[in-house]
Design a protein around this nucleic acid. Structure first.
Lengths: 327, 327
DNA sequence: CCCACCCGTGGAAGCGCTTCCACAGCAATA
DNA sequence: TATTGCTGTGGAAGCGCTTCCACGGGTGGG
């Protein structure tokens, strides 16, 4: 009981009357130890309230005990979306189940080399990037290759875990067609997020197959942009009878913009979103959308990074259509 | 270039032709170093892509290099609210500005001692608890006292950083009174979150002062509960002409419940929320609410924990009324 | 021209831990 | 009883880093 110092393994060993080596074996559960030694060390640990120092342990075991999670972007588009919070919760929880710590890094959108610094400590068992942009992904240091995964589709080099945009979009647009819409517009995601390309492809295909015209306007996943986009769309193609937005937030904005225009939803124009955020069911009309299994995606990414097997380039999670009032 | 090994300070020193001590001084910026040595070390660092090992550094500097952020609760009430995400973003960003790493811990609501384990590594510079419950806060180990802060009002023992619920509520309820409402009901937060008490107090005071009747029903910060609460309120006090919910999500639910009852908002009943979440402006009618400077709060908490001065028991951040359509 | 002084430097210790290795016991076999 | 084999143990090295301390070589003043 030397002062109020935090107990070290040496203290434990001394209190238990064994060597530090033995104490270490008991504490880690690795290596042989007699029942007697085991008991005495356990007692000493309990009495002293000993907790192993993670830094010291990491130093010698050379890591694997920590997982970095990086979120790219501090803009409203990222912050306003419940998506990131849910992903973080799932990632943290999954990592904890594997007894791995999580370090959080919230990086500005445009700052090359910001991910590079994460490789800093050798204690890093892996890296999971949420909202990955291609430039950001390119700064991931080579030393981490094989231990990196992206939540959302990123670059070719980094394995991605994402909702299947193509199938999801396909489902939504087909639903629109099926319910009699034939002049369907789409609001995409921001151009710096590569994840939208497949969605646009799917939209294009379905629209063309049904003999419709492709009407695409760029979005940025914000509600504000959705409202603008609605006005743009109706000005450019006044006969539009459905709008599909690749984000619920944007779809909600579209709803708002359409309302401002005096357009009836779903009477005149149907609106569909993507993600099924908690508010989707709360808007009037309630938003028709597609689920986004973020928790599963995040958990999958974490498990993949932590696992020992090679990670496949892309893992898609399927989403299901949620039909409410707006379409 | 010995194999693909990660460069250590020794490598840098050797490459720069100086001792490890000198290299360390240059890298950390502490202690004297000649311009020449500085240049050569910097060059070596750049060439080798050297990044200091956090574990090794923490081991010898005895911590302060890492901040733990813990979120309590994995329920929808926590996950659905953009609040937590914003707080995390701000906390991570602020910590990064101080060159401090952040470890994220997302703990189940009821698991005593879960916070205790965080004290594990001595490298811990502090702890910030988001969504603090009293029981959780009680498990914070003594070794961390003085380096802990709660985002949201928690226990008496842990300094709190929160929005000023009292003033905020006061402002909202006064607004309701001012606009002619006299039978005002309130939906509170969950009982396990102590932060709501001051709000209820404020509500009580204003209502009593204006000669009204206190009508309080319990909430849990979810939208679903808001819808239920609306029905409850209208059944119990049919002449209610305003409902104030301590959470926007709940207020949105109230809006929904009222709509189901055929009650006109704001014609028959005014509805006001709390927090000004992104979606608040998107509902119909748009929600009247009060801002919640989460970013400032989180940044304040992080700075306080990281700072050297004593933290005052409670720091309140003021919120401002946002009048939209619903009240 | 010599001494005191100071700046910059390298040697070495040590942070708390794991793990290799050698070795001491003891039981089982010859 | 002498040998083999095993299990459990302690000594010691070393992970990558910071920092104390002693020391060398420049500068300035006497």
């Amino acid at each position: 009981m030397t002062a109020n110092r935090i107990a070290t393994l040496d203290d434990v060993a001394r209190a238990a009357g064994v060597s530090r080596a033995t104490a270490s074996r008991v504490v880690t559960g690795q290596g042989p130890a007699s029942p007697k030694a085991r008991d005495r060390v356990a007692a000493a640990v309990a009495e002293l309230g000993y907790v192993p120092d993670a830094a010291a342990r990491a130093l010698v075991t050379r890591g694997g005990t920590r997982l970095a999670v990086a979120v790219i972007g501090r803009t409203a588009a990222v912050l306003d979306d419940p998506y990131v919070g849910r992903a973080l919760a799932a990632a943290a929880t999954t990592a904890a189940e594997h007894e791995v710590g999580v370090s959080l890094h919230w990086l500005p959108l445009h700052e090359p080399a910001s991910l590079a610094r994460l490789a800093g400590s050798r204690g890093l068992g892996g890296l999971v990037v949420i909202n990955p942009t291609r430039p950001a992904l390119e700064t991931v240091p080579r030393s981490l290759r094989g231990r990196v995964a992206a939540i959302g589709v990123g670059s070719r080099d980094v394995p991605s875990f994402d909702v299947d945009n193509r199938n999801g979009t396909d489902g939504v647009v087909r639903h629109l067609v099926r319910t009699g819409r034939s002049r369907i517009a789409m609001v995409t995601g921001p151009s710096w997020l590569p994840c939208g390309d497949r969605a646009v492809d799917a939209y294009r295909r379905v629209v063309r197959d049904s003999g419709g015209e492709v009407r695409v306007v760029p979005g940025d996943f914000t509600a504000a942009r959705g409202a603008e986009a609605a006005v743009e769309i109706m000005a450019r193609w006044p006969d539009t009878d459905a709008v599909f937005a690749l984000s619920d937030l944007t779809a909600l904005g579209v709803l708002d913009g359409l309302r401002g225009l005096g357009v009836d939803v779903p009477g005149d124009v149907a609106v569909a979103g993507f993600d099924d955020i908690p508010f989707a069911g709360l808007s009037r009309p309630a938003l028709t959308t597609t689920t986004h299994p973020v928790e599963d995606i995040a958990a999958g990414a974490v498990r993949a990074v932590l696992g020992s097997r090679d990670i496949s380039p892309v893992t898609f999670f399927s989403s299901t259509l949620v039909v409410r009032e707006s379409a």
